[in-house]
Design a binder for these strands. Structure first.
Lengths: 205, 205
DNA sequence: TCCAGATATGAGCGTTTGCTCGGGTCCGGC
DNA sequence: GCCGGACCCGAGCAAACGCTCATATCTGGA
């Protein structure tokens, strides 16, 4: 768990506790006050840690958020479970495969919903602070692999592009729901709509 | 063109020129230095205008960005031309209608691409500073209207949801392209893919 | 021509933010 | 028990920022 910059890496338990406290304090501040109210000073204060200590592990605000994003991503991967592996190994029909993938994703998105929402809405996009970016890239990779393996089940065309379009589109709808209509993530409605969206788009005929 | 807060509205030409200079200076700063390097002081300096003058028209940085976003939105609507009206009045088959809508949108997205990219990537989402928000809402509204009018041409289901999913998904792909692969906006490839995505999703059968 | 109101100026105050540094305390191996 | 290194502390400085206000200048209509 190396810090991004040349900062110290915690070796003892109390140091790990310190780092943990800072990250969780940042999470609380994000939820309570928003992204631009998050500062290194405030995070240190809320964590009950000296500002000097904080700067031993994090070079700036971005480094803290990056660690937080990384943590959430890890938690989501746990929530996702073995879906990825299962998908990659089995040979489900298109419709079912998409459904499974979306179910896993929905489960992952239910992790720390309020925090995710804040990050989604307020953190800079497209960089290491973008919670969804790594996730989307991972899914595109997966879909692409499946498509190469079973071309017969998909429409002809640019595989890279198709995978990217399908995943990006579906994810955007999920993110939009997470940000503006969280209740939609609960039922199966959205899952079914997006299954249709992606599977129809990718299917031959 | 009322400012959001209780600030002065320009009445004379030189005042309008001042406001214009500030907005365009903000645009330049966004492109050159990024969103968080944009401050009221810097915008005033680059505009060749006193900070006091700036504060007569804009209460804060957000107000400037809001005016800029509004300006770009207007320019895009011009670029979009009469596509909207044409679509609403004609009765094109689903596939063609989607194609026309996407063509108009692509034209609109070619306005101030670098600036749009910066705003897309760095400005807070989901509020009045979100360049895409108003646009997406407008398109959803349009699609919904068409769907209500010609239900026979669409799959059965929750019209609101379907319109929202189709437009949100397609737009996200466009935005992603605008942010990370601008060259994709040039050809017809993306247009064709997204036409497929949306029309297959919405079509009966 | 004159003047009321519109516009412009910029020094500078109060605050926030990022970050350092000199100095302590605690832990674990020997 | 000793000691080196890991860890923690927090006053406080420099820079950046938001914003005001007293003052000066310009413009268009009467």
């Amino acid at each position: 768990m190396a810090r991004s910059n040349g900062r110290r890496t915690p070796r003892q338990d109390r140091a790990r506790a310190t780092v943990d406290a800072v990250i969780e304090a940042a999470a609380r501040i994000l939820i309570d006050d928003g992204y631009d109210r998050l500062t290194t000073n405030r995070a240190a204060e809320r964590a009950g840690v000296s500002i000097g200590t904080l700067y031993q592990y994090f070079g700036n605000k971005e480094a803290i958020v990056e660690a937080l994003v990384q943590r959430i991503a890890d938690e989501r991967i746990s929530a996702f479970g073995d879906t990825l592996r299962a998908l990659a190994e089995q040979d489900l029909p298109l419709h079912e495969a998409v459904e499974v993938l979306l179910d896993g994703t929905l489960a992952a998105m239910r992790v720390r919903p309020e925090l995710s929402r804040r990050l989604l809405l307020e953190a800079p996009r497209g960089g290491r602070l973008d919670l969804e970016h790594a996730w989307v890239a991972r899914c595109i990779e997966l879909v692409r692999a499946v498509m190469y393996r079973r071309r017969d089940r998909f429409r002809e065309g640019d595989v890279e592009l198709m995978a990217s379009v399908a995943v990006t589109g579906a994810f955007a709808v999920l993110q939009d729901a997470a940000a503006h209509r969280p209740e939609l993530l609960e039922g199966d409605v959205l899952r079914d709509e997006l299954t249709l969206l992606a599977s129809r788009y990718l299917s031959p005929e």
